[in-house]
Design a protein around this nucleic acid. Structure first.
Lengths: 134, 134
DNA sequence: GTAGATGCAAAATGTTTGCATGGGG
DNA sequence: CCCCATGCAAACATTTTGCATCTAC
């Protein structure tokens, strides 16, 4: 594999992802970076996002509508997708459950279980309050 | 909403999904049905798959590569995605874990947790054996 | 100077939609 | 007969890719 060279754009992408809790799509990253780097291209954003995923510096979150969102937080955590507004929020689970879940799965599966990902569906705080007051 | 009318194609789609454990993509469904119904169109497959999802007769499985697969089994179960061949297989978990996981998530979340979905990553039986013998 | 990174645009994917036609009720 | 479902193709949205240029090293 080729040696990685410094890139102002890649740093900016990492910086933006590190500073937001929004779990943005590639297009959102592009729109945000365009403010500071008017010449940046969508292709560059995609190329760098995929690079960062391959290097394990960020993770992909596939949503049920087929879209993909990106997250700078690579620690073991889950996401809730708001069924109303589509927002993606972080959720943490008890360590004991998370660590036993792979073993549980492995015990009935004849292949190899390496890892897992848990996604929740429901309403974010904002949409829940809106529902309650209507 | 309009009344649903019988459709030979929709029945065939349901029939195919009911008879396979392959968790096919829309395109695979199309290719399979084309054998029996050479005139069927991709648009019809997509329209009916979406219809069936909306009616709750089948479920969508979003995979990490951004693709979507369909499953006739709407019961509460999980999937393992093989990192090597992309195959999607069923995995069952202990009832007690599944039922407590929403409560666990809800206890630290300020919105509303309704449902969840667990995906595992690893190797299917076939790819595991291939790895071991190499 | 060389190889990787970029911007741009074209191409490749995957999915939806408009419309005239066909078929179930 | 009416209206939904279909086939077909065009439209769309999203992601990847080819290529000339630029830039880190």
């Amino acid at each position: 594999m080729p040696t990685l060279k410094f890139s102002r754009q890649r740093e900016a992408i990492k910086g933006y992802l590190a500073g937001t809790k929004e779990h943005p799509t590639a297009d959102t990253v592009y729109a945000e970076l365009k403010k500071d780097y008017p010449n940046i291209s969508l292709g560059t954003v995609y190329r760098n996002l995929n690079l960062l995923v391959d290097m394990g510096e960020i993770i992909k979150i596939p949503t049920s509508d087929g879209g993909i969102r990106f997250d700078f937080d690579v620690s073991d955590h889950c996401h809730l997708i708001c069924e109303k507004c589509g927002r993606v929020e972080d959720i943490s689970l008890d360590e004991s459950i998370i660590s036993s879940i792979n073993d549980q799965a492995q015990s009935t599966y004849d292949g190899l279980v390496k890892d897992h990902e848990i996604q929740f569906f429901g309403l974010c705080k904002h949409c829940l309050e809106e529902t309650n007051t209507q």
